[in-house]
């Protein structure tokens, strides 16, 4: 709706209400992953016992998402399809290795496919979703319990803010050593970005001050933000560096 009001999305004569499709709602365990319906709202994410238990990083992101009124209607599917580089749930979903479940009914026959979220985003507002497809759900693998997860959003307000940058980190932590490290960044590239070099700097290492600094420097080098009126590229790089250090300090 805000996009259409601003004239960025032209209305087509057909408006399709998805609200009454039960398969798009609810959070459920499906084997070793969580299936989060595309129409699950931010409020529902925060209230879901399954999400709280297995992906608290999504709860953190939902808590910082806009306002209570918006959290009551904004859906995870909507946030994913909007494909904003600063979309609050995208960074945690990347760090969680989520998959996007797409469905279509081209010839009366329901077909579906799953796309790793890292491949789903093609640019600001652009995704792999075909015109006839809808996003039905997000699937998040349930990892080992007790992983370190943290979402960090830099904005001047607790919520109701478009982040200048955001960071998501997920990792196993055994005796101070990180493994299966996933680091993702928001608002630093045309799409939400996985920080491969940053991950490599952390994988299998003890979180010493030197390792944290190396990882933060790698992060600063691998993001490629732009200047816009919300922040300059220089500031975004600096913040990726400084804030990642802050997040990692919490993991020690």
């Amino acid at each position: 709706m805000p996009q259409s009001k601003a004239g960025r999305v032209a209305f087509e004569p057909l408006l399709l209400g998805l609200r009454r499709i039960p398969e798009l709602h609810g959070v459920a365990r499906d084997g070793d992953s969580l299936r989060i319906g595309a129409l699950v709202t931010m409020t529902e994410l925060m209230e879901s016992a399954l999400v709280r238990a297995h992906c608290p990083i999504l709860v953190e992101a939902a808590d910082q998402f806009a306002s209570d009124q918006v959290r009551n209607v904004a859906t995870i599917g909507g946030n994913v399809c909007n494909a904003s580089p600063a979309g609050d749930t995208l960074v945690p979903l990347l760090a969680l290795d989520a998959e996007v479940e797409l469905v279509a009914k081209p010839n009366g026959l329901l077909t579906g496919r799953r796309v790793p979220i890292g491949e789903f985003f093609k640019g600001p507002g652009k995704t792999l979703r075909a015109r006839h497809e809808i996003v039905a759900a997000l699937r998040v693998p349930i990892g080992v319990p007790g992983r370190f997860m943290r979402f960090f959003k830099l904005g001047s307000r607790p919520a109701l803010d478009i982040s200048a940058i955001s960071i998501g980190v997920c990792a196993r932590r055994d005796a101070g050593v990180l493994s299966e490290v996933r680091v993702a960044f928001g608002a630093v590239a045309p799409v939400p970005l996985r920080g491969r070099a940053t991950e490599a700097a952390l994988e299998g290492r003890q979180l010493t001050e030197a390792v944290i600094e190396t990882a933060a420097a790698a992060a600063r080098d691998e993001v490629h933000p732009i200047d816009d009126f919300r922040a300059s590229a220089w500031y975004r790089r600096e913040m990726v560096h400084n804030m990642l250090k802050k997040v990692l300090a919490d993991a020690t």
Partner: peptide, 10 residues
């Protein structure tokens, strides 16, 4: 029963 912004609701 939940508060929402009427301007964003069709």
């Amino acid at each position: 029963g939940r508060p929402v912004n009427a301007c964003l609701l069709f």
